[in-house]
């Protein structure tokens, strides 16, 4: 999958904005939003939040987890744990990217957030690479991947699935099964 498509999915996440305008309820196909009143926080999908922000019609409230202490805690937890810890949001990377790109002035300590999230990502990717190594060596046929986010899975998708496909073919040849459906 194209990373842009993972971002597309992340744009469905709800985020709190403080509108600078008042407007009636809008009946979208994917569900109603509004009514908007200037100054009153309201939850909207990220794609709409970014659009309103670009038109300077709102301020974006950073999500609760985008916080120095919380992220530092997560980072420590990730370092201490052998397994992947649960991220505060399935799309933490994409949301951070989008917010820092389109609304850096609404995010307190934006640079620090960028570094913290990048650190978390690097830690997890290093862990992911070493677990893939262990997994492939272990001869296991399947694995549980709890707490990995879609963007993380997507970066290793082609490499991992293709290697496992090959291993499966080799294993089946060993055990004498005939592969009739190879492309």
């Amino acid at each position: 999958m194209d990373p842009a498509e993972v971002e597309f999915l992340a744009e469905k996440e709800l985020i709190t904005v403080v509108p600078k305008f008042s407007f009636d309820r809008i009946y979208l196909i994917g569900g109603d939003i509004g009514p908007f009143s200037a100054g009153l926080p309201i939850d909207v999908p990220l794609w709409l939040a970014v659009n309103l922000k670009q038109r300077q019609k709102c301020r974006i409230r950073p999500p609760e987890w985008m916080d120095r202490e919380k992220l530092q805690g997560k980072k420590q937890e990730e370092m201490d744990s052998k397994f992947f810890i649960e991220m505060p949001n399935q799309h933490y990377m994409e949301i951070t990217q989008l917010l820092l790109k389109y609304a850096p002035d609404d995010i307190p300590h934006a640079d620090e957030m960028r570094t913290l999230i990048k650190d978390l990502w690097d830690l997890r990717m290093a862990k992911l690479r070493s677990s893939i190594d262990t997994f492939v060596r272990s001869d296991a046929t399947h694995a549980k991947l709890n707490h990995l986010t879609l963007m993380e899975l997507n970066t290793v998708r082609l490499f991992l699935t293709n290697s496992l496909d090959q291993l499966y073919v080799l294993r089946s040849n060993l055990s004498g099964k005939v592969q009739a459906t190879q492309e």
Partner: peptide
């Protein structure tokens, strides 16, 4: 997940809501 073969036993997995897996 895996049928019984000569050198490996069959493998059965219980799936819980919210779990993520990679398999055939």
């Amino acid at each position: 997940v895996e049928e019984e073969t000569l050198d490996t036993g069959e493998e059965i997995v219980d799936m819980k809501r919210g779990d993520q897996h990679i398999m055939r």
